[in-house]
């Protein structure tokens, strides 16, 4: 299985990724650093004030091919993309991945598993994971001592 972002990157970026992977244990939180040893389609993760957002590129995937679950502090995305062989066809080139693959994304903050939502549009899966109340930023008012 070949993924665009792994295989076709310029060697300089591969080197950078490798350096990132080596150094990430020192500077990053441990769960996210563990993702450097990934398999499966690429994900982007970012944080907003009230939610974590995960984006994954899954071209050709439909709702029924997806299985998304949140267990404790891990988001797991399984994709089962059936092979699209048809009768009377010859493949001259086959770069697009097929088959089943999965990703487990360790979540750096506590999320409200009940309110997790996901949408699929134009081959991009977006998962929104609202933070648990305890993980949301809270403004602390400082009272002036008399």
């Amino acid at each position: 299985m070949v993924f665009r972002y792994l295989s076709t990157r310029h060697p300089v970026y591969q080197l950078r990724d490798e350096m990132d992977r080596l150094l990430s244990g020192m500077f990053q939180s441990a769960p996210l650093a563990a993702m450097a040893r990934r398999e499966g389609p690429a994900v982007n993760v970012w944080e907003e004030d009230d939610a974590l957002r995960v984006e994954m590129e899954v071209p050709g995937v439909k709702n029924e091919h997806l299985d998304i679950s949140v267990v404790e502090n891990e988001l797991s995305i399984k994709v089962d993309l059936p092979d699209h062989d048809e009768e009377g066809m010859t493949y001259h080139r086959r770069e697009r991945p097929v088959g089943s693959f999965s990703r487990v994304v360790p979540l750096p903050v506590e999320v409200d598993a009940e309110k997790v939502s996901a949408e699929l549009s134009q081959g991009v899966l977006r998962v929104t994971l609202p933070k648990a109340p305890s993980a949301k930023p809270r403004k602390i008012n400082v009272s002036v001592a008399e």
Binding site: G88, M89, T90, Y91, E95, R96
Partner: peptide, 20 residues
């Protein structure tokens, strides 16, 4: 983009992954 190129009796099909 990654592509698949297939040939049928009467046509060639090019499929390209262009998510987003």
């Amino acid at each position: 983009p990654n592509v698949d190129i297939l040939e049928k009796d009467d046509e060639l099909i090019v499929m390209a992954d262009v998510p987003g």
